[in-house]
């Protein structure tokens, strides 16, 4: 991609092996009345251009907070980033001034949200909102900007874009609203698109269409995409690699193929087993026992140990490091070999 961005920062085109976006040992905590909530505890992942990384995890696992830290849209305070780096083309975003970060947002890294109805401003037409991107960031005139908005609406395949450009968000269906959100996000050709549960609020048929659209747009523009989700079904088709998060940490890192073939962390394994399957109709659906950890009072040792079928004594005391299984694969489980082989403890 040879874009000529008017903004010098950060440098285009990574140096050497520097990935497009790299999160390195990121910590995020929130000061609340009840105490310090450590929402993200040392998360690292990286993304290359044209690559899709799926970040998987349940509510409260820190996946969205990590994304918001990358975007710099966390409310600080109460949030705080005591440690870590977010390198975009080699520049640490966390060290940039607020003005410089505003230049990155939307133009270089964009984000779409779960519920597109509440993510669109209810009092302006969708055309106004999409064209605003061009007016503010590209200094376009109103007429040209609206023309571009219609083009974008066509590109995200909103039927009758020309007729609908003056409609308000609530006049669109859920899937169409998400398309509008996507149109706004890709308006300025960002290099990275973060999609925070983009299909969770949609029904299943529409989910597939939206995912297809995202994958297609990504292919066209060679964007890097971070897909945050708790739905393993969504991930399989579009993602290249997966980072599974639990209790504010990454517990497994792997390519999609590897993870579906044989998970190396008991939590991933539990997630995969709890997908409803047609061939197991009538049987009880598998559920991971227990509850997600309380972020105010994390279990000692491995955060997953109270729910883990592979638990041994040392899991209660020793927090597992991210073991390297292969060059592209990690697992934060002391007994990843057993999990990989599939024999229950």
């Amino acid at each position: 991609m040879s874009k000529t961005s008017p903004h010098a920062l950060p440098a285009e085109g990574g140096l050497g092996n520097e990935p497009l976006l790299a999160v390195d040992d990121l910590h995020v905590e929130f000061a609340t009345r009840a105490g310090l909530v450590r929402a993200v505890n040392g998360v690292s992942y990286s993304l290359q251009a044209g690559e899709t990384l799926a970040v998987l995890g349940e509510s409260g696992s820190g996946k969205s907070v990590t994304a918001q830290a990358i975007m710099g849209i966390l409310d600080m305070p109460p949030a705080r980033i005591p440690k870590g780096e977010v390198r975009f083309n080699g520049t640490d975003l966390l060290r940039l001034s607020e003005e410089a970060r505003t230049q990155v947002r939307g133009q270089r890294i964009a984000m779409i949200f779960q519920d597109a109805l509440s993510a669109l401003n209810p009092v302006f037409t969708v055309g106004w909102q999409i064209s605003e991107m061009f007016r503010v960031h590209r200094g376009m005139g109103k007429r040209d900007a609206v023309k571009k908005a219609v083009e974008l609406m066509d590109r995200v395949r909103i039927p009758g874009a020309k007729q609908r450009v003056n409609d308000y968000p609530h006049q669109f269906s859920g899937g169409m609203r998400q398309r509008i959100m996507i149109a706004m996000a890709i308006a300025l050709d960002p290099e990275v698109l973060i999609a925070d549960e983009p299909t969770t609020a949609l029904d299943v048929t529409v989910q597939a269409q939206v995912m297809e659209l995202l994958a297609e747009l990504q292919r066209e523009s060679n964007m890097g995409m971070i897909l945050i989700t708790h739905d393993l079904g969504v991930v399989a088709d579009v993602a290249d690699k997966i980072a599974v998060m639990y209790g504010g940490r990454i517990v497994e890192n792997a390519s999609v193929h590897d993870i579906y073939k044989a998970p190396a962390h008991p939590y991933t394994k539990g997630l995969l087993e709890s997908i409803p399957r047609v061939d197991l109709k009538g049987q009880d659906l598998y559920a991971i026992k227990g509850l997600p950890p309380n972020l105010l009072d994390m279990p000692t040792g491995c955060a997953f140990h109270p729910r883990c079928p592979y638990r041994q004594d040392n899991c209660v005391t020793d927090s597992p490091p991210l073991y390297e299984i292969s060059g592209t694969r990690n697992s934060a489980c002391h007994y990843w070999r057993e999990v990989l082989d599939g024999d229950q403890g």
């Binding site: 975007m71 949200f113 960031h137």
Partner: peptide, 17 residues
């Protein structure tokens, strides 16, 4: 506290906007 404010921020809107 509504999402569209966060979304606007995520798409590069400044404080005045």
């Amino acid at each position: 506290s509504q999402d569209f404010v966060l979304a606007a921020k995520a798409l590069g809107a400044g404080q005045a906007r």
